[in-house]
């Protein structure tokens, strides 16, 4: 009897209650949840929690995390704007300035990035070398006039210099094929323009097709077969014109392929090295 009484009273005494008074949406709980999401790399949801937290109280680390969340999810303009708010009066000022430049770098408007680096108010003393490196990289990514090689290589370490120097030379002297040369070559010798752009098989085929139709046209006219003569003359024009046009297109495609391969290679190289950016602990 005593045992049964103890059993039932214990159940009532220690039972879980549903009338929990915890406010899950309090600023501190939002911050805790946001930090958990941030650690879990769920940056989109973390940013929302941090934003809500910052409505109630200001914390520069949270502001930094919010900006970094935007950076991680590719919302670079928002990231840049949020890093900018930490430039003054924050212990993370230098880091924010670096991340501000990083955000602007990933916007892919490299001309704008270079303009930013010229504005000294944004520059960071601690990470000036990193910003200089990003600045040098922009020249390899767009079609701006290349600076002097030594100037471009200056912010990089000696171990990276040889590869970046190779990129610089490839960018400065690309092995493109000239459209004009390809057209001229194909005009003089059908198929030669194609051979010039590396399409040897196409070049030989074009030469044979044009030569054969010229011969057939000439032979038919010679033997007074007017219709067949004109038919093959038309075919000659078809192959000859097509080959000249095709040589121009082929030269353009060849150059585009060189450009595409170069850009992919450069991007991969820097991506693998995280653009030589440091790991920031905060």
């Amino acid at each position: 009897m005593v045992f049964l009484f103890t059993f039932f009273s214990a159940q009532i005494s220690f039972a879980q209650q549903d009338s929990d008074s915890t406010n899950y949406f309090s600023p501190n709980n939002r911050l805790k949840f946001g930090s958990y999401l941030y650690k879990d790399k769920d940056y989109l949801r973390a940013a929302e929690e941090f934003k809500e937290y910052l409505k109630f109280s200001y914390d520069d680390t949270v502001q930094f995390k919010l900006a970094n969340s935007f950076l991680k999810i590719g919302r670079y303009t928002e990231a840049s704007d949020n890093f900018k708010t930490l430039f003054l009066g924050s212990s993370l000022s230098e880091e924010s300035r670096l991340m501000f430049f990083e955000s602007n770098f990933f916007l892919n408007d490299y001309n704008f990035f270079r303009t930013l680096t010229e504005k000294e108010i944004y520059l960071t003393e601690k990470y000036s070398r990193e910003v200089d490196r990003l600045n040098s990289i922009t020249y390899l990514f767009d079609n701006a006039k290349l600076p002097d090689e030594n100037l471009l290589l200056k912010p990089f370490s000696d171990s990276a210099k040889s590869q970046i120097s190779a990129f610089f030379l490839e960018k400065k002297f690309p092995k493109y094929r000239s459209v004009t040369t390809a057209v001229l070559l194909s005009t003089v010798i059908p198929g030669a323009g194609k051979i010039y752009t590396g399409e040897i098989g196409d070049g030989i085929t074009a030469f044979v097709a044009t030569a054969l139709s010229v011969y057939l046209s000439y032979n038919n006219f010679k033997n007074d077969h007017q219709f067949r003569g004109w038919l093959f003359a038309g075919l000659t024009a078809f192959f000859y014109g097509g080959n000249i046009y095709g040589s121009a297109a082929s030269a353009q495609i060849y150059s585009a392929r060189i450009r595409f391969n170069f850009e992919s290679e450069v991007k991969l190289y820097f991506e693998q090295r995280n653009y030589f950016l440091p790991r920031i602990d905060y």
């Binding site: 085929t205 074009a206 078809f238 192959f239 014109g241 097509g242 046009y245 095709g246 297109a249």
Partner: peptide, 8 residues
């Protein structure tokens, strides 16, 4: 012209 090139 583009087709003539493709045909070749």
């Amino acid at each position: 012209l583009i087709f003539a090139d493709r045909f070749t």
